[in-house]
Write a protein that binds this DNA or RNA. Structure first.
Lengths: 223, 223
DNA sequence: AGGCCACATCAGGGAATCCCTGATGGCAAA
DNA sequence: TTTGCCATCAGGGATTCCCTGATGTGGCCT
């Protein structure tokens, strides 16, 4: 209706496989005076097609897409359109995917649980060239980096050989006593290794450690 | 703007913990001439409060809420407001939750992956007093009933609603005490649920239970 | 109406574990 | 040599695990 700033609208491309979510984001974008939803994609392939059609200024991408995943899409976008920033907007827990997303080339990560204003704040921050992460997530990463200046990519690289061995066994469903017997060491020793694993990986308790180990073990087998 | 049918608008109450999703659904509802979003709730408790305030004609409820789950909310609604139909609108695969939702008292199940028109069709169908399920899901259930094949394939189907809830929390890295606090139940109760989970799923100890739960939770989120 | 069974809730108690502090010796880099 | 990481283990209180057993409710079958 109001044709006051026809030239400088910031074009946003939305990639999400849930139509309802796309509609919600779209409305959120369009009610900002300087933003415009230039297109919506429900798959990675469609997103790449629309890049050519609309030449957007920023992308909002969901992690879980049908077929090619959001993370893979981000990697492809990084190669072909490295100047266009990508903000991940996902329902998945940020502690699981935020770092992975940034390493794939995304400039920020917002959970759908967050208030809608956070999304707009994140978009503007990313457009300025900054990264966006929740304070909680920033603290988590910062703490890990300060504990041991890792130039490497994965916190797994920080583990000693013994620790990695224990970590792998945890991921395969071994209890503490099982591991002690397997390695022919004291239960107390295994407990110490587990404590160090929690420290190095920034985990809160045994439940989180087991969860992380199982997830890692699954992915390790595939690669 | 157009004030033509001020008297007989159908009031819809939306329950979802994702603000963006609520906004999307709300817009979808409001652009229908005879529908009106009378309120939005982000939790089960808030939903129950708003029932008194707005007396809606229908509810759209998400399965995965913080705190009290969507299934539990539906059961409570069934007791207190059995005349108000509930339509489940969830991102989770219908093959996992549709039947469970209907047994809890819901009148229909729509996935967020579906086109937005499907949501409106489902709402109108539920308001007429019918049930709504996707054709695919209807066929699946019909086939199972006709075969007399009541024993599902996955042992997960054996779990009660409460057990499944605990199972999911385990898969998300919650310790026993965390789960007890989350559900506001005794630690002893949670321990009993865990014991039943081990029995029903044929698992040897807590480590195996956690491993299985984590693996299942991962796959569940992606579908 | 009565019986049966699944479900959800909780308790007691011994074994295992978690989680903290702290210790020892080895080895390698600063 | 000092510093730091590594691997090993212990003590001890808190928590969880894992067994047996109990209570009430609600649905279903006869």
């Amino acid at each position: 209706m109001q044709v006051q700033q026809p030239s400088k609208l910031i074009k946003v491309l939305i990639v999400d496989d849930h139509p309802i979510v796309r509609q919600g984001i779209s409305q959120l974008i369009d009610q900002e005076p300087d933003f415009d939803t230039c297109g919506q994609a429900s798959s990675a392939q469609q997103a790449l097609d629309l890049m050519e059609v609309y030449a957007p200024d920023i992308l909002l991408v969901d992690i879980s897409l049908d077929g090619v995943s959001g993370l893979e899409l981000i990697k492809m976008l990084k190669v072909r359109y490295h100047m266009v920033p990508v903000l991940v907007l996902s329902m998945h827990d940020e502690t699981l995917y935020a770092e992975r997303a940034l390493r794939s080339g995304a400039k920020g990560y917002v959970m759908k649980q967050e208030a809608t204003e956070k999304v707009l704040i994140a978009i503007r921050q990313v457009l300025r060239g900054d990264l966006y992460l929740s304070e909680r997530m920033q603290g988590k990463i910062l703490q890990r980096v300060l504990n041991g200046d890792e130039g490497g990519l994965s916190p797994i690289d920080l583990l000693s050989d013994r620790e990695l061995e224990v970590f792998r066994l945890i991921g395969h469903g071994y209890a503490t006593g099982d591991i002690a017997r397997e390695l022919m060491r004291s239960v107390k020793t295994v407990e110490t290794h587990r404590a160090h694993l929690k420290d190095k990986l920034g985990l809160k308790n045994a439940a989180e450690l087991t969860r992380f180990a199982v997830q890692w073990a699954e992915r390790e087998q595939q690669s």
